[in-house]
Design a protein around this nucleic acid. Structure first.
Length: 272
DNA sequence: ATGCGGACCTGTTAGC
DNA sequence: TGCTAACAGGTCCGCA
C-alpha cells in the first residue's frame, strides 16, 4: 500500500495527535508482523512521552526519551488515530493508548510491516543505517545517480527502487517518474546519460512532492490516519493504465514485468 | 560487489 | 454461482 507519500501523509496525520502525549498502555493483539513485535517495546515504551515523530524512508519513528518506536507499513499496513475505546477489527496488531484518550492503531493484513523498539539512535538501527538519501537531501543529485549507475546493468526501474540509492521510490512512482523523464523502465541503469538522469531526478522529486500534496495515492485501500483516501491516483499517467491511451501520443500504454513487479510505460515516449 | 529470485502474508479480483 | 489462480503499494535474505 504505502510508498513514501503515503507514509509522509500518515506521519503528518498522526503527529499532532500524539506529540507530547504520554503512552499509558501498549496493547499487542498479534505479535506476528515481519518480525515479532518485541516484548521490550511494551515494557519500555509504556509511561513514555512522545518527544518527536519523524520519517526516514518509509519508516515512521516515534521518539521518546527511553527509546524509539520504529514502524513500517509494509504493503498493506495503516495507522489510524481512534478513540481509545474503539473495538478492534481483524488484523489490528497493536494499539498505543495515550493519556489524551487517543489510540494509535496499527492494522496490517499482510503482515509485511514492522513495529520495533530501539534504545539506540534509530538511524543506527540495522534496518536504517545503510539506506540512501531522502529525495530532497543534498546528497541526492542527478550526478550521484549517474556516478552510482556506471557499469550497472540492472534495469533503471530497479535501480531507482533500490533503497540504498534513494529512499521512497516504490512501484507506482518508479513507473510515473520514468514516464515523466521519457526513459524506458528496462533501460540498463549504466547506459543512461547524465542529462537523462537530470530529467529523472527532477521527475522523482516533483512526483513525490505533488503526491504528498494530494495526500498520497489510493489505489484500493490506502487511507490516511483519519480514514480518508489520497487523491494522487487521478494524476497517475501510466501506472495501472495498460492499454489506455498515452496522455502525450495516445498510443496504448504497455505493461511489462521487471523484477517481478508490474511496470507501465509508453513505448513511443519512453526510450531505451 | 552485483543481480536475481524466493520468501514472507492475506485479501480481492479475474478467469474458467 | 463457485472454485482456482493471479496479483497487490515492500524489502530482506541467500545464492550464483
Amino acid at each position: 500500500m504505502p510508498e513514501l507519500p503515503e507514509v509522509e501523509t500518515t506521519k503528518r496525520g498522526i503527529a499532532p495527535h500524539i506529540l507530547d502525549q504520554t503512552i499509558i498502555n501498549v496493547i499487542v493483539r498479534d505479535r506476528r508482523l515481519r518480525w515479532p513485535i518485541p516484548e521490550q517495546l511494551q515494557l519500555e515504551a509504556t509511561g513514555q512521552k512522545v518527544i518527536s515523530i519523524k520519517r526516514r524512508g518509509k519508516y515512521i519513528l516515534i521518539e521518546t526519551i527511553a527509546g524509539t518506536i520504529i514502524l513500517h507499513l509494509g504493503m498493506s499496513g495503516n495507522l489510524r488515530i481512534l478513540a481509545s475505546d474503539t473495538p478492534p477489527k481483524k488484523h489490528d496488531h497493536v494499539d498505543f493508548i495515550f493519556n489524551n484518550n487517543q489510540c494509535l492503531r496499527l492494522h496490517d493484513p499482510r503482515r509485511f510491516g514492522a513495529c520495533l523498539w530501539t534504545t539506540e539512535d534509530p538511524l543506527d538501527h540495522k534496518l536504517l543505517k545503510d539506506i540512501g538519501p531522502e529525495p530532497w537531501d543534498d546528497a541526492f543529485t542527478a550526478n550521484m545517480l549517474f556516478k552510482r549507475s556506471r557499469n550497472r546493468t540492472l534495469a533503471i526501474k530497479n535501480f531507482i527502487m533500490d533503497s540504498k540509492v534513494v529512499v521512497g521510490v516504490g512501484n507506482i512512482y518508479a513507473s510515473e517518474s520514468l514516464f515523466q523523464a521519457g526513459i524506458n523502465p528496462e533501460t540498463p541503469a549504466g547506459k543512461i546519460s547524465l542529462n537523462r538522469y537530470k530529467k529523472l531526478f527532477i521527475a522523482i522529486q516533483k512526483i513525490l512532492e505533488k503526491s504528498i500534496q494530494q495526500g498520497g495515492t489510493t489505489l484500493k485501500d490506502f487511507t490516511n490516519s483519519s480514514g480518508q483516501p489520497g487523491y494522487f491516483k487521478q494524476e497517475l499517467l501510466v501506472y495501472d493504465r495498460e492499454g489506455k491511451p498515452c496522455v502525450n501520443c495516445e498510443r496504448p500504454i504497455s505493461k511489462v514485468v521487471i523484477g517481478q513487479r508490474s511496470s507501465f510505460y509508453c513505448n513511443l515516449c519512453q526510450k531505451k
